[in-house]
Design a protein around this nucleic acid. Structure first.
Lengths: 236, 236
DNA sequence: CGGGGTGTTGACTCCAATCAAAGGTTGTGG
DNA sequence: CCACAACCTTTGATTGGAGTCAACACCCCG
């Protein structure tokens, strides 16, 4: 039952159980799958109209902005089951660009579909509201534990977040999981340089807190890492 | 018409015009005014149940978290017309503490009232959704232009944000406005030390970008400051 | 007037950025 | 199946911006 094949449905069912007709309504958002190659943009910051959202059906993507000095800031990583661009609902043009990290399937849908849900199902409305709020809770946790902390805590917190978010749609996630991000990506996400990410990760490895080889992350003891970076799992 | 006495209503009307019955529904959220003295907490992080939201009717408040090492992070400043704790809607306990900055009037209301709005008015639902999303847009702009930038840009961007948010309910805001925050508060908000805030502000003053004396901020040319820190007014 | 919170200034330290070069890995085509 | 190129990662040396520590100046306010 909760083992639905759609990650979006699994994401929602991890919050609350759904009836058949609610699942129907949700699946409507995933009706137009588009395939994206690695490094392909879904849309670009500043461009409009931003009258569509998207569901990440399969793969990995990230939201980013390029600065005049050539640096890039990644503001979010999108996983299967995530709604992309939900926060841009009130805007006329896109706040951030979105790019696939590897071959991915993404389904665009018009704002209208969301408005329809607001009309048709107070329960799904509540759940969408929760999903949107949860994104904000996560953002705030980043400001609390990532932006205003030392480098080792930042990296550790980021890994805990990725684990927690992946676990929501993959309840049986092992302590060894795939994270197809280069150190460059991680650096752009955490606001540091890739050189320093490298040094920080090797330091964390020496302390046996986490390991990384290419895209495989290993966290020997999740509980220890969580305590290290004051990560509160109940908020993800 | 748009000159309603309630800041919350003005906030909503700045997005879209409201009918009488919608205003009624909104005003229901402001029915239990409570007075808070400076430095008084509305609620504390970690405490629960978080089954109430609040409307900032009058005054100033801030959301914060205290870290084990004694440092404090301020994650948001609340202005009249703001909904406090909206993002905590999916949580069981409060993510952050909220404290009045000076004598303030704040109205608590139960989650239930929000759920009722979802049932009764798709239009208000859409608008609440927009308000919640806009908070997220603002958070993301902070990560883009505040957290990952040099100190002078951070302070400048923060001032632009405060101006823009105040202007939403005070359309005639002058280039000289009240900001009852100490440099210590600003430092906790931007993740820097009060010493460095002091140095940065005096640097910005020398460059004629902004001035501060106690709680009076003066921005000689808003447009110049905006360009300096790549502030996009259309997103506030 | 005095005193506590607030703001300023200087000297010093340190974490992370920068610059630079050398290893590793992956994948592609000959 | 090897070789080479492109990208990613590691490591070292140096620089610089912001933190820290500390003393002093400035207001308000009582």
């Amino acid at each position: 039952m909760s083992k639905h094949h759609s990650c979006l449905v699994r994401q929602f069912e991890s919050h609350e159980n759904l009836e058949e007709d609610e699942i129907e309504l949700l699946l409507r958002l995933e009706r137009s799958p588009e395939r994206f190659e690695a490094e392909q943009d879904l849309w670009r910051a500043g461009e409009g109209p931003a009258d569509e959202l998207a569901v990440m059906s399969k793969g990995w993507a990230y939201g980013y902005v390029d600065h005049p000095d050539g640096k890039r800031t990644i503001n979010d990583i999108y996983l299967p089951g995530d709604v992309i661009g939900l926060h841009e609902y009130p805007l006329d043009s896109h706040q951030t660009s979105v790019r696939a990290l590897k071959e991915s399937t993404i389904c665009r849908f018009p704002h209208k579909h969301l408005d329809d849900i607001f009309e048709l199902s107070p329960k799904l409305t509540r759940m969408f509201f929760k999903v949107a709020c949860l994104q904000q809770v996560i953002l705030i946790n980043r400001t609390l534990h990532t932006y205003h902390q030392a480098a080792d805590h930042r990296v550790a917190h980021f890994m805990c977040e990725m684990y927690a978010r992946l676990a929501r749609t993959n309840p049986d996630l092992a302590n060894k999981f795939n994270l197809p991000l280069t150190q460059e990506h991680i650096a752009s996400t955490l606001g540091m340089t890739s050189v320093h990410v490298s040094r920080t990760i090797s330091q964390l490895s020496q302390e046996n807190l986490m390991f990384r080889q290419r895209d495989i992350i290993t966290i020997p003891d999740l509980e220890v890492l969580r305590r290290f970076t004051a990560f509160d799992i109940s908020q993800y």
